[in-house]
């Protein structure tokens, strides 16, 4: 295995991690601010991808498609917050799990009802397609490099929003003491709708960006949703920094585990068996990582200590 391949794989792991971060950022924001477990986050990701695919199909513009994904998901998020989520802030985690589980059912089958059972088409725009050559002679798809760039921009933007703006101050204050900032005259329910819509919009954007190189289909959100939860739990719920680091950890573990575990096992085992056992272990790797982190630090890497 050459050094170039190893570097390329590390890059792939990083890139996968950033993709997960796009999804996890909204999730951790919503949980951090509102204390809400939102299982329907994956559905908003799907909504974004479907919106993007429809708009790209009608107009042929990828940028417009991204805008549509962002807006439609934000809009869907705002509606969901006003109609359902608003009633659940004081409820137990259990009720939130059930309500958002119900939302998954409604969103998935609703999308299938509107768009049919077959996957939709969404492609990388021509100006971002094809590989570029990186220093060292690595050929890497331009679109994936763009994804890394967008992910880092989103991270930066979120940091700026929470650390440097008035809304950010309100958000952080809301995390700490909801009654207090309400008493200080902040319209807390408007703030929550805003945060939820922002989280949803990020999920929708992620769905559109990732949908361009994956399959836009009903149920596409659930596998990512679980991984996104793994990410925010490893990072510590509510922490944007934790989500970024957790996402990269998960991305690297998943990608590198899939490649090196079978190779590693081939040192002791016959090749076919090593490939199978290695892949089996690799698919469990991120969950093993998560439980080890939680056993070591029960509130994640950057979570608030109880």
């Amino acid at each position: 295995m050459s050094a170039i391949l190893v570097i390329e794989q590390i890059l792939n792991g990083l890139q996968f991690g950033i993709m997960l971060f796009l999804m996890a950022a909204g999730l951790t924001l919503i949980f951090g601010v509102m204390g809400l477990i939102n299982l329907a986050h994956g559905s908003l990701y799907m909504v974004g991808a479907f919106a993007a695919a429809s708009v790209a199909g009608a107009t042929g513009s990828f940028l417009l498609a991204l805008v549509a994904a962002f807006t439609v998901a934000a809009f869907a998020g705002a509606i969901v917050e006003i109609v359902v989520i608003r009633r659940l802030y004081r409820a137990a985690h259990l009720d939130q799990v059930l309500a958002t589980f119900a939302l998954i059912l409604i969103f998935s089958e609703g999308t299938r009802w509107v768009f049919g059972s077959f996957p939709l088409f969404l492609d990388v725009p021509s100006y971002l397609s094809g590989p570029v050559t990186l220093p060292g002679g690595i050929e890497y798809p331009l679109y994936r490099l763009t994804l890394i760039g967008v992910g880092l921009l989103v991270a930066l933007g979120l940091w700026w929003l929470t650390a440097r703006t008035r809304i950010g101050i309100q958000i952080r204050a809301g995390e700490n003491d909801r009654e207090m900032i309400a008493a200080l005259g902040v319209d807390i329910s408007k703030l929550y709708t805003l945060v939820f819509a922002l989280g949803a919009a990020l999920a929708g954007l992620a769905g559109a960006l990732v949908g361009a190189i994956q399959s836009v289909q009903v149920g596409m959100g659930e596998p990512v949703l679980i991984l996104a939860f793994v990410v925010i739990v490893i990072g510590g719920i509510g922490s944007i920094k934790g989500a970024l680091i957790g996402a990269i950890l998960v991305g690297l573990t998943d990608t590198l585990g899939g490649i090196f575990l079978p190779e590693f096992l081939k040192l002791f085992m016959e090749s076919g068996a090593a490939t199978q056992t290695g892949s089996a272990l690799a698919s469990m790797a991120v969950y093993i990582l998560m439980s080890v982190v939680l056993i070591w630090r029960p509130t994640g890497l950057f979570g608030a200590r109880p």
């Binding site: 050459s2 996968f16 899939g258 490649i259």
Partner: peptide
């Protein structure tokens, strides 16, 4: 090369890199 991927996997960047190499 012979590879088993995860069922339901959606990202194949790592596998494609291996194919290339």
């Amino acid at each position: 090369g012979e590879l088993y991927t995860e069922l339901g996997q959606t990202d194949y960047a790592a596998e494609i890199a291996q194919i290339r190499a």
